[in-house]
């Protein structure tokens, strides 16, 4: 395509965290980039842009998906949820509170992707065992914690019925 066309944008309507956003995007823009840089929802992080690390995971219609492997134009008509959308106006959600209580984060960069993934897990399976938690977590790389306290936090949140 020609250079002029290259920078053509198209209008999309995105539904993110219950809010409607109308904006112009280039078709090639990744959902992660649009969430972060157009909508200012910077909790979603970008770590590899090939779907491996899981830092950019968001919920699309309630299911965890990689926002680096989805174009923003494709998200039209879907309900996208980021960590901002899972966070109460004040304080922490029960899962977030369990993460703090169990020291389930260090640098915090992978944490939002892990929170949305574990939130989805607990909605599908409110009482997972450790193996189930680890399997669901295995698509999110954390370089700091060695995962143990994350697993503990998720199991504790499940036990408390969140």
């Amino acid at each position: 395509m020609s250079q002029a066309e290259a920078r053509q944008t198209q209008r999309v309507v995105l539904q993110v965290n219950g809010q409607r956003h109308e904006l112009d995007v280039e078709p090639r823009w990744l959902l992660a980039d649009v969430l972060r840089h157009q909508l200012g929802l910077t909790a979603t992080h970008v770590g590899c842009e090939q779907g491996v690390c899981g830092a950019c995971t968001v919920l699309v219609d309630g299911k965890p998906e990689r926002s680096c492997l989805m174009l923003a134009v494709q998200a039209e008509g879907c309900e996208v949820t980021t960590v901002e959308g899972l966070t109460p106006a004040a304080g922490l959600s029960p899962l977030q509170a369990a993460f703090q209580q169990h020291h389930a984060l260090q640098c915090g960069f992978c944490t939002p992707g892990i929170l949305v993934t574990m939130e989805a897990l607990l909605r599908e399976n409110p009482h997972p065992d450790e193996a189930t938690v680890r399997e669901a977590l295995s698509g999110n790389v954390c370089r700091c914690t060695g995962y143990q306290f994350i697993v503990d936090a998720v199991l504790a949140a499940a036990k408390e019925g969140r």
């Binding site: 395509m1 990744l30 779907g51 680096c68 492997l69 989805m70 174009l71 008509g77």
Partner: peptide, 26 residues
């Protein structure tokens, strides 16, 4: 493009360079 879980990594690496994408998802 369907799920894009193989195609979008190739796009991001610029190893796939399509002129246009036809999205089958809808």
């Amino acid at each position: 493009i369907a799920g894009g879980q193989s195609l979008i990594p190739l796009l991001n690496f610029r190893m796939a360079r399509p002129e246009a994408l036809v999205d089958l998802n809808r």
